[in-house]
Nucleic acid binder design. Sequence first.
DNA 1: TACTAAACGAGACGGTACGTCGAGTCTTCGC
DNA 2: GCGAAGACTCGACGTACCGTCTCGTTTAGTA
Lengths: 196, 196, 196, 196
Amino acid sequence: MSKQPDPARRSERSRQAILDAARELVSEVGYAKLSIEAIAARAGVGKQTIYRWWRSKGAVVFDAFLALSQDGDSIALPDTGDIEADLKTVMRATVAEFADPQFEAPIRALNTEIISDPELAAHYREKLAGPVDEAKKARLRSAQQAGQIAADADLDLALELLYAPLFQRWLHRSGPLTPEYADALVDLALKALRPD
Amino acid sequence: MSKQPDPARRSERSRQAILDAARELVSEVGYAKLSIEAIAARAGVGKQTIYRWWRSKGAVVFDAFLALSQDGDSIALPDTGDIEADLKTVMRATVAEFADPQFEAPIRALNTEIISDPELAAHYREKLAGPVDEAKKARLRSAQQAGQIAADADLDLALELLYAPLFQRWLHRSGPLTPEYADALVDLALKALRPD
Amino acid sequence: MSKQPDPARRSERSRQAILDAARELVSEVGYAKLSIEAIAARAGVGKQTIYRWWRSKGAVVFDAFLALSQDGDSIALPDTGDIEADLKTVMRATVAEFADPQFEAPIRALNTEIISDPELAAHYREKLAGPVDEAKKARLRSAQQAGQIAADADLDLALELLYAPLFQRWLHRSGPLTPEYADALVDLALKALRPD
Amino acid sequence: MSKQPDPARRSERSRQAILDAARELVSEVGYAKLSIEAIAARAGVGKQTIYRWWRSKGAVVFDAFLALSQDGDSIALPDTGDIEADLKTVMRATVAEFADPQFEAPIRALNTEIISDPELAAHYREKLAGPVDEAKKARLRSAQQAGQIAADADLDLALELLYAPLFQRWLHRSGPLTPEYADALVDLALKALRPD
DNA sequence: TACTAAACGAGACGGTACGTCGAGTCTTCGC
DNA sequence: GCGAAGACTCGACGTACCGTCTCGTTTAGTA
């Protein structure tokens, strides 16, 4: 039986240094060229300290950005009562985020790893995508109650209808990502979702 | 100025052996653990011969599957006159394809590489996605002429509305991929696209 | 500034395995066809472990034979009081050594490398040739005191007069290496060195 | 049975270009880093043309310098009647030659290869060393007839006594090579060789 | 307050693969 | 029909990291 490390004794200083180094290095050299060796060196940490607490390079980077995204936001969507306006606001913000080179690299990195690591993907859904999706679904549910969206609409599917086109266009760079695109997408999706 | 290899002198036998080996190895060990070294060994080819003709592991694998997909199909979608039925047929087929472990691995591999290599992504859109998308848009255009889809619909967006949710769910494993899901998606998308 | 390896952490087991493998392989395939790759494989060692501690193939082989020659001998020449007899004994032994296929290959290997690597040559003179030459000069000095050799003779030159012809004939294979040759050489050299 | 090339059809232009390129490259990068590839490129010649006419890199370089040394000199040593003066002249010239960086590199290269290639060594003795040695022995023989050297002296051995110390000191860089050294060596050797 | 066990920085280790170079062979094309 | 050009297979190069494994050295929490 192998020994498990004791989280109580974990060095917070090292943990932070590693996540910081990971973030910096992803930005500097990209995810593919990122190495555990480099993270350890930059963080002034032994390699074993990384291997002790993370399964893989992907897991480190994941945690690095998880920590980032949990800092600032309360993940509640605007609710002015007008679902169309609110969704356009949010979608335009998403478009802007995808266009920001600061977000670009790490999000692509995350997706690279998630594609081929089901376990990491599950973690991602639970910790990152999940909460955000829940917030989005809450807003849709509110629209449902306001009669702006069909009462029997499948909200998971609705969410995909709204976000997947945007996500795919960004991931595959298959077309321009503009505010107008966001608006058109919302219009179309709401047409699909409106009560009969 | 460095010397360029002369495509006229290229060994067709080696080219085929490399693409075959790449295909086999992706299936056997997965894309992440695939190495140029292994491809060369399996193909009975010098590594230099791979480096001479391809920029990266991703480019080799890409060509391997490009060659595959160009072999058999004429990429024309069914057109029975009933757009809903036809789309459900096609979407169910796509669902099945995504579920087939034979396709699973290489398509994930392709996406992994495409995400972070814009040049390869462009190549992908041009050679693989493009023709297929054109065929799909042709079918939608036919439905437009038949009055089943709004005359002013943006077909690129329409395509995304139909396929992106499916693709995203598969890529992120964020939900079950069933024939019923395909049907529901078609229903919803067609609702968005139908004439007023 | 680049990092230096820490000799204190060096694995003695690996060091020995590498030197042994180098010795074996020089005998088996010759120096020219010897590769670091093969040494590492035979020694069950990573290539880096060789590169970490030696500058070149030549340096490894050098150390391999340095270790050998330091094992057994106390490098003191016989001193019966008769310089002629003693030198003939030693020179005949040298002739025999040069004829021994076990010594042949590695000594040629050593000389190959020493010719074009001044640093290695210096190391060689210091660690291998030096001590032996000192022992030989000690014997000559003793003969000097006994009046068998001119008091003002340059012992370095004397040494060369004795050994260089033998060495050159062996190196260039320019003539037979026999005990008689050794004797003749000693006779001639002593004639040059004797007191007037 | 394999095909032999027909010397009659050999391209003199290519032969010269190859030998010239070999000479230049040995001077520029040294023998160890010299490659057939580079010689072919510099000479504007296909690699096969080199492999067709030479067995190895060493053979090419050897021919390159053989051609050189056969151009200018008639290999006759000075004969003033004073063997000591004549030898000192010749030995001082040899010392100067060894010190000349232009000669240094190629001669070391030649020796490197000769050590481990008996066939090349034989070729060397026959074509390069031989004639020179004969000339030297002729001068010694003349001294013998003049009574300056013992009548029964073994001239091969005598030659070695004179040249081997010089050669060895140069090859192993084991001491300074000065005109004084040449003189001392001649004095000592002549003492060994003089009639009783 | 000392003891002790764990986590720590450091880095050597056996390995795998990298991307490059050159060897020697084989093929194609032009003179 | 020879020879330049150069693509081929093969093997080694020297490097970068992998993930594992000691080493001392902090650093906590018992005792």
